[in-house]
Simulated assay, not measured.
Amino acid sequence: MNTNEEEQQWEDRFRKLGQLKPAQPRPFFYTRLEARLKNRMDQLEGSVRLPWWLQRPAYAFGTLGMLVALNVLVALWQTSSSPPTPEPDAGTYEAFVQDYQLDHQTVYADE
C-alpha cells in the first residue's frame, strides 16, 4: 500500500468517528444510581462507623510523620543556632584562657 492510501484510510476512519452521536445513558440510569447509593448508605448506617482516621490510616500516619519531622527539624535548628559567645578583648586574661582553651580556675600570683 502507498502511504497516501494509508493516510486516506485513517482520515476516513476519523471522519466516521466524528459523525457518531454521543452515547446516551439508558433510561432511568440516574434514578437507579441514586437508589443504589441510598441503599448503600442505609447499609452503612446500620453497621458500626469507624472514625475517619481509622478508615483512612494513611492520613493519620502522614500527619504523625510530618509532626515528627517538624519537631526534629526544630530541635536541630535550635541546637545549631545557639548564640555565639562574645569574643573577649585582646590582651585580657579571658582572651588568653579562651585562646589556649584553659579551665577557668583561679590563678593566684602568690602560688
Rank of each mutant, 00 (worst) to 15 (best):
Y93R: 11
Y59M: 02
T31V: 12
F28M: 02
Q8L: 07
A35M: 02
Y30R: 13
Y59P: 00
K38C: 09
V97M: 15
P88Y: 01
P88C: 03
Y59Q: 02
L17G: 11
V97C: 14
E45Q: 06
L54G: 03
F28I: 01
N71H: 10
E94A: 14
L50E: 05
Y30F: 08
L67Q: 08
P22I: 07
W52D: 12
E111H: 14
H104I: 12
S47E: 10
L76C: 13
P83Y: 01
G46T: 05
T79G: 02
P22C: 06
A60L: 01
V68P: 00
V107E: 10
Q8C: 09
Y108I: 05
V107L: 08
L33K: 11
Q98N: 15
Q24N: 12
L67P: 00
P88I: 03
Q19F: 07
P25N: 08
R36C: 05
L76P: 03
P86C: 01
Q24C: 10
P57R: 03
L67N: 07
A90L: 11
S81H: 15
Q19S: 14
K21Y: 04
V68M: 06
L44W: 00
V74Q: 06
S80G: 00
L54A: 05
G46N: 07
R32P: 00
F61V: 12
D89I: 04
T85H: 01
T3F: 04
K16M: 12
P88W: 00
R13G: 12
D99H: 15
E45A: 11
D110M: 03
V107K: 03
G62M: 01
R40I: 04
E7Y: 04
A90V: 15
F29V: 03
Q8E: 10
L44G: 05
R32S: 06
G46I: 00
T63G: 11
D110L: 07
A60I: 01
P27E: 11
A23K: 03
Q78E: 02
K21M: 04
T92E: 11
E7M: 07
Q55L: 15
L54I: 05
E11W: 08
F61M: 15
M66T: 12
A23N: 02
F61Y: 14
P57Q: 04
Q8R: 09
L102F: 14
A109P: 05
L73S: 10
L70S: 14
A75M: 08
R49V: 04
L17H: 09
V48L: 00
M41R: 07
D89M: 05
Y30T: 12
A69W: 02
E94S: 15
E11R: 14
P83R: 02
E11I: 15
A69Q: 10
Q55V: 13
W10G: 06
Q98M: 15
A75S: 09
K38D: 13
Q24V: 15
L102R: 09
F28G: 00
E34R: 05
F28V: 02
N39D: 08
E11F: 13
V72W: 09
K21A: 15
N71K: 06
